[in-house]
Nucleic acid binder design. Structure first.
Lengths: 151, 151
DNA sequence: TATTTCGCGATCAAATCGGTCAGCAGAATC
DNA sequence: GATTCTGCTGACCGATTTGATCGCGAAATA
């Protein structure tokens, strides 16, 4: 249940793209501004390109840009592009698992876990992220003082 | 953002313990009833013992039992015992990370992610799990038809 | 044509994952 | 006290993942 460097980098990179609306942004500039190893970032951007989130052009004046309006790209989209499906259990989607005995209800718990993650990650678009205007449900969660407590 | 085999096994094992209220349950019986490799399970049970969730006795008539009432053990407790902190980003707790530039708001998103996971995993106790009586917020999430859709 | 920049596979060290093995340490039984 | 049962624990293992670097090819521009 952790967020990988790859996912973190990916979101930061596309956030930077969402904030640079006009024209291609070079990989190097993304790497610099978000302090991400350039060559690692290029692989990530390739993943993002393959899943249709960014587009790219080579050569001088080349770079990366969002393939869609920032409002139409959710953080969930970005994470799935680089990490694969969210909240799989033992590499299988929770809806495909059946438990027996005392763990019979566990499937519902994993489904709820996935749903709650989706509630946050799918409702937040890149536009929300860069504007600082997070969706109400997300902002409410982040405003809870208890949410900032380590455990 | 996935649930490891270890975490899945751990929850299933303690669910089995929660449903066997009287006396120690042998590792072998837990392994059999939940179809978990015995020797792997023993390591997991050791983790659970070290974090005070389970107690054990050796020898004939030995086995494992819950150290606390099933109502007082959350699924979050179990996952933390075997996987460590929930929703860390790049191995660091989200409250300790500061982002710059267009990603400045990202910290709030990760905090919200952790909070939403906690809402599910900390509110659900082992007693809830084995009784099938999940907390309202969890049951609501699991009842949403959309939550069962793969993506 | 030269330069710039992305595309992409190969490779790499380290960590993690899922799991097995073997031997030791208590607890009960005979 | 000896034996048996069962948990305790560290070592180990192969495969995969993680986080990253290298090198070269292929476009795009100047």
């Amino acid at each position: 249940m952790r967020v990988s460097a790859k996912a973190d980098y990916a979101v930061r990179a596309v956030a930077e793209l969402a904030a640079s609306p006009d024209g291609p942004v070079k990989g190097e500039r993304l790497a610099d501004s978000q302090d991400i190893p350039l060559q690692f970032l290029e692989h990530i951007l390739l993943d993002l390109k393959h899943s249709g989130i960014v587009r790219a052009r080579r050569g001088a004046k080349g770079g990366y840009w969002l393939a869609k309006p920032a409002e139409d790209v959710s953080i969930a989209d970005v994470i799935r592009a680089v990490e694969g499906p969210i909240a799989h259990v033992q590499s299988a989607p929770p809806e495909s698992i059946t438990y027996t005995g005392s763990a019979r209800e566990l499937q519902n718990v994993w489904i709820a876990v996935r749903a709650s993650l989706r509630d946050v990650l799918e409702s937040t678009s890149l536009a929300d992220l860069v504007s600082g205007n997070l969706p109400d449900n997300v902002q409410r969660l982040a405003d809870d003082k208890d949410a900032w407590e380590p455990r």
